[in-house]
Computed example of a mutant assay.
Amino acid sequence: MTSLRHKQEPRDAYLDAARDCILDVGWRRTTLTEVARRAGVSRMTIYRTWADMPQLLADLMTREWGGVVAESLAAEDPAAPAVDRLVGDIVGTVQRLRENELFLRIVELDPELLLPYLLSRRGRSQDAILDLTARAIADGQAEGTIRAGNPLAIARGLLLAAHGHVLSSHTMVDDDVTEEELDVELVLTLSRSLRP
């Protein structure tokens, strides 16, 4: 997925080159030098923007996951009640992440890259998602369609529930249960936890 912007900035072209590298050879074998080569710029151009690959990866993931969320938000029905919009946004994001080629490649080749965001700290994308979710919860509370409570605590609980469906749903799919059935369960779990 390229940037959602109509006019591509140089930084986006560099992130696109990094994305292509990671898709081709994985994170561990991607270097800033290779990113520069693919972007058609000097190494110093890349080094002036990112001191190392972890910084570049953080920016790439922020852009990529932000794009996934933006796609989910664009698909929502603005006439639906706040709780239905929020549940749809969360489930849509979960589904899109599970299909995102960069996410799948990281999980396949370099799953340890995700561990800090699951075990140690939140990332920028998670904080942005939490902010959007907490605001949607507050809107739904004002509308009377979402239960009372601390919007940020509720948002964090929802994000924790969604993590399992993004990262582990494939371990629960077999001849007895489909991914679609698990998504229905996620919708029910989220809806019931949000309604007054």
Results as ranks from 00 to 15, higher is better:
residue 43 R to P: 04
residue 116 P to S: 10
residue 195 R to A: 12
residue 89 D to W: 08
residue 82 A to Q: 11
residue 165 H to W: 09
residue 109 L to M: 13
residue 133 T to L: 05
residue 24 D to N: 11
residue 147 R to A: 14
residue 69 V to K: 05
residue 48 R to E: 08
residue 161 A to N: 01
residue 131 D to T: 15
residue 2 T to K: 12
residue 15 L to Q: 05
residue 48 R to T: 06
residue 181 E to K: 09
residue 86 L to F: 08
residue 4 L to F: 07
residue 163 H to P: 00
residue 125 S to A: 15
residue 110 D to N: 15
residue 33 T to R: 13
residue 134 A to W: 04
residue 18 A to H: 09
residue 100 N to K: 03
residue 181 E to Q: 15
residue 72 S to E: 06
residue 9 E to D: 13
residue 153 A to L: 14
residue 136 A to D: 09
residue 166 V to Q: 02
residue 151 P to R: 04
residue 115 L to H: 09
residue 81 P to N: 02
residue 8 Q to T: 15
residue 41 V to P: 01
residue 3 S to G: 14
residue 144 G to L: 08
residue 62 T to K: 10
residue 174 D to A: 08
residue 176 D to F: 11
residue 94 V to R: 01
residue 47 Y to A: 14
residue 6 H to Q: 11
residue 9 E to F: 10
residue 111 P to I: 06
residue 49 T to I: 02
residue 156 R to M: 12
residue 4 L to N: 09
residue 162 A to Y: 01
residue 10 P to K: 04
residue 135 R to P: 00
residue 183 D to Q: 08
residue 20 D to T: 14
residue 90 I to F: 06
residue 36 A to T: 03
residue 116 P to F: 08
residue 123 G to K: 09
residue 16 D to V: 09
residue 156 R to E: 14
residue 63 R to H: 05
residue 191 S to C: 00
residue 131 D to Q: 13
residue 159 L to Q: 09
residue 120 S to T: 13
residue 74 A to F: 05
residue 68 V to Y: 03
residue 167 L to Y: 15
residue 105 R to L: 01
residue 135 R to I: 00
residue 152 L to R: 15
residue 14 Y to L: 15
residue 87 V to D: 07
residue 5 R to C: 01
residue 156 R to L: 10
residue 48 R to W: 04
residue 31 T to Q: 08
residue 57 L to M: 14
residue 167 L to D: 02
residue 49 T to E: 11
residue 121 R to Q: 14
residue 100 N to T: 03
residue 179 E to A: 15
residue 98 R to A: 10
residue 63 R to F: 03
residue 81 P to H: 07
residue 89 D to N: 10
residue 55 Q to G: 12
residue 156 R to K: 10
residue 159 L to C: 01
residue 148 A to V: 03
residue 58 A to F: 05
residue 144 G to R: 04
residue 110 D to W: 06
residue 179 E to I: 05
residue 24 D to M: 11
residue 157 G to R: 10
residue 11 R to A: 12
residue 39 A to K: 06
residue 134 A to K: 02
residue 12 D to C: 01
residue 148 A to L: 10
residue 21 C to I: 01
residue 52 D to H: 13
residue 185 E to C: 06
residue 118 L to E: 03
residue 17 A to H: 05
residue 1 M to D: 04
residue 89 D to Q: 13
residue 94 V to K: 00
residue 151 P to Y: 07
residue 93 T to I: 00
residue 26 G to M: 09
residue 131 D to I: 01
residue 23 L to Q: 04
residue 195 R to L: 10
residue 169 S to Y: 05
residue 81 P to Y: 06
residue 196 P to C: 06
residue 191 S to N: 07
residue 24 D to S: 15
residue 171 T to V: 07
residue 111 P to S: 09
residue 41 V to L: 03
residue 12 D to G: 01
